[in-house]
Amino acid sequence: MTIRVVVAEDQSAVRAGLVMILRSTPDIEVVAEAADGDEALAAARAHRPDVLLMDIQMPRTDGLTATRLVVAEQLADVLVLTTFDLDEYVFGALRAGAAGFLLKDAEADQLIDAVRTVAAGDGLIAPSVTRRLIAEFARGPAAPGVPRPAAPSDALAALTPREREVLSLIGAGMANAEIAARLGMAEATVKTHASRLLRKLGLRSRVQAAILAQDLGL
C-alpha cells in the first residue's frame, strides 16, 4: 500500500530535500507540498493524506495551529519536525495531538521509517526528544509548558484489562505489531483496543497515551 504524504516546510531547499528523500522509496508518494500552515491545511483538506509532515515555525498560520486544525478535522496523522532546542514547540504539538516528533537533522532512513511508523498508526518520538519529554514530566504537574494528559481515575477504571495491557505496552514504546506479538492477537485487534482506550481517556494521540502510561507507572 502506498503511503500518501504532504510535506509542509517554509524553507524551499529543506522542503525539496525532504521530498527527494521520501520519493526515493516506492511505497511513499508525496501528493502535495506546502510553504506555510495555511497551505498545509488546504493540502490536507484537498488530498486527505496518510501523513502530514509538519514544520513548526512557518509564516502566516504556524505549524502548531495547523496541527490542531488538521487533528481536529481528522484529515491526517501529523508528524512534526522539530529542533533539539525548541522543547516548547514539542509540548505544544503534543497538546495539539501530533502523532509523532522527528528531529530536523534526522538521517534519510530515519525520516522514511518515521513516516511508515506514523502511517501504520503507531506514535513516534525521536529518542532524544523522548528523554527530554520524560525529564520534563518527571518535574511534576507544575512544570511550565508541559501538557499532562488528563486521565481521571474513573476513566482509567473504565478500561478493560486488555486495554490496560495495551496502554502499558504503548507506554513501553511498542508498535502495534510488537504489541500484537506480545499479547498473541491480530494487529487489527490491537488498533481497535488502542482507539477505544484513547477515546475513554480523552486523549488525542498514542504519544499522549505513552506519556500518560509512563506518568502512571503502568
Rank of each mutant, 00 (worst) to 15 (best):
F101S: 03
R45V: 08
V71I: 15
T67G: 14
V70K: 10
Q57C: 07
E107D: 14
D38Y: 13
D36R: 00
A106Y: 01
R68Y: 08
L53T: 10
A98K: 13
V78H: 06
H47M: 13
A93S: 07
T61H: 10
A66F: 01
K104L: 00
G63L: 09
M54P: 01
M58Q: 07
D38C: 05
A42T: 12
A40F: 08
F91M: 09
D77G: 10
R95C: 08
G92Q: 13
L79G: 05
L41Y: 03
Y89G: 03
I56A: 00
Q57F: 03
Y89Q: 03
A96K: 07
A40V: 06
A46V: 09
E39D: 14
A108E: 12
A108F: 05
E88M: 14
Y89T: 02
A43D: 11
E88G: 08
I56K: 01
E107T: 11
M54V: 04
R45T: 10
V80S: 12
Q57P: 01
L81H: 00
A76G: 08
M54W: 04
V90A: 12
Y89I: 03
R60N: 02
A76I: 08
G97Q: 11
T83Q: 12
L111Y: 09
L53G: 06
M58C: 02
L79M: 07
R48C: 09
R95W: 06
V78D: 01
A99R: 15
A40P: 05
D109Y: 10
D105T: 08
D105F: 00
I56D: 00
E88I: 07
L111M: 15
Q74N: 15
F84K: 00
D38I: 14
D62G: 03
R45P: 08
I56S: 02
D105V: 11
R68V: 11
T67E: 03
L52W: 05
E73A: 15
L64E: 12
T82K: 11
A43Q: 14
T65G: 14
L103R: 00
E88Q: 14
A35R: 04
P49D: 04
D55R: 11
R45W: 09
L111A: 04
A40D: 02
L52G: 11
E107S: 13
D50S: 06
L81T: 06
D85Y: 11
G97N: 12
A72I: 11
L94C: 09
H47A: 12
V51C: 06
A108W: 06
Y89W: 13
L102F: 05
L103V: 03
G63Y: 02
A34Y: 04
K104M: 00
